[in-house]
Simulated scan of single mutants.
Amino acid sequence: MGTTWSLRFDNPRMLPLAAVRAAVEGALGVVVAQMSHWEQDSDISRINRAPARSRHVLPKEFAEVMRCAASWAAASGGAIDPTVGPLVACWGFGPSADESGLPSAQALAAARSQVGWQRLAFDAAEGSLTQPGGVALDLSGIAKGFAVDHGTQALRALGLADFLFEIGGELRGVGRRPGGQPWQVQVDTGLAAAQRIALADMAVATSGDRWHQRAHEGKRWSHTIDPRTGEPVAHALASVTVLHAQCMEADALATVLTVLGPDEGWDFAEQHGVAALFVSHGNPSPTMRATSDWPAQARS
């Protein structure tokens, strides 16, 4: 997945560290084999190369991620779209990135014509989809969160009950720290006083424009692409952090809210009871706004 993972845990049963590492790497290997569009022989890459009108029954993990992505795509009017791959590549990101500079109008039009999650004819009950031809799935906005959840399941199956598991800055806290206190994480807001939150059987995911950007001829743009317009997001939002019981849901919602922006995203979060922290670019310093469901003890 092009990133790192870390684990902090209480180990009263003195499980061998090699067994713990093997459990995590085994779970992450399943996600990579199914959903990494960087791996040519993964399930997602084979679907992306598949001929038009071919039908594919997905592995159960892949199907679970697609159900979540399709659900939030429908709820948000397409602010998250698992077929956004051609647009991501067009703007210079991902394994098929066109890094020649700003995309031409013709290239953007061609990419837009390939995007649209409804074209997949995804059957949520059966866990199958149809490749209409030329559609490139990209689950970067949700798969890492699922990997956190999948690794969590593997650690619980091993017998661990108290741990903090992280992949690329997305975390899930299970149980308690040694001593009985909940796991604590710090949210980078860009402000002098960082937000500290407790992850008591909760997950946290952050999306924003401060980590992956491209620039060409004086124009700078974010890696977050709005599937509805085909353009990188251009609003004042710097980052969105979401708390949820499941990291997959937090990851997907952080993507949705980042695309929707500080106003539309705020309204969406309030309507759907999402615990979210919005940080916007400001002068002289960033501004921060928390939804009603954001923990009161974490408010500034």
Score class of each variant (00 low, 15 high):
M248T: 05
I142L: 13
T255F: 03
T3R: 08
R119F: 01
M202W: 02
Q131D: 04
A203C: 12
M14T: 07
R13V: 12
A254P: 00
D201V: 08
S285G: 00
G180I: 08
V135E: 01
A33K: 11
A234P: 04
E25C: 11
D81N: 03
D267Q: 15
V32I: 14
A161D: 14
W221F: 11
D98K: 13
A236G: 13
A109W: 01
E249A: 10
P232A: 10
D43C: 12
R112Q: 14
P178A: 15
T258R: 06
F93W: 08
S207V: 04
L120S: 05
G265P: 03
L15M: 13
A276G: 05
R228V: 09
G159I: 08
G92I: 01
A234N: 13
R119G: 04
V84R: 07
A23I: 08
A192F: 08
A276Y: 03
M202H: 09
Q246D: 13
M248E: 03
A298Q: 00
E270N: 11
W5M: 07
L171D: 09
T224I: 15
F163C: 05
Q118R: 15
V204M: 15
R46P: 06
T152C: 14
I44L: 10
G151I: 01
V88A: 10
H281T: 06
Q114C: 13
Q246C: 07
R299N: 10
V259P: 04
E25W: 04
H37G: 02
V135D: 07
T229L: 09
A236S: 15
H150Q: 08
F146R: 01
V204Y: 04
I167Q: 02
M288Q: 14
R55L: 11
V30L: 13
A27N: 04
K219V: 15
R210Q: 14
L171M: 15
F9R: 06
L253K: 00
A109M: 11
M1K: 02
A143R: 04
G159E: 10
E270C: 09
Q271C: 02
A75S: 12
A69L: 10
T287M: 10
S207W: 05
M288V: 14
T206I: 01
D263Y: 07
G127F: 02
G218L: 09
G85H: 02
P16I: 07
V30G: 02
A75C: 09
D226P: 13
N48Q: 11
A276L: 04
D41W: 06
E217Y: 03
W72A: 00
P295F: 06
V240H: 00
P262M: 07
D98M: 06
S42H: 00
V256H: 01
V185R: 04
W211Q: 14
G208P: 12
L277T: 00
L277G: 05
M202F: 05
H212W: 11
H216M: 09
G208Y: 03
L120N: 03
V256E: 06
E231S: 12
G116C: 10
S292D: 13
D81T: 08
R53N: 13
A198W: 07
G92A: 06
V31A: 05
A252C: 15
Q297G: 00
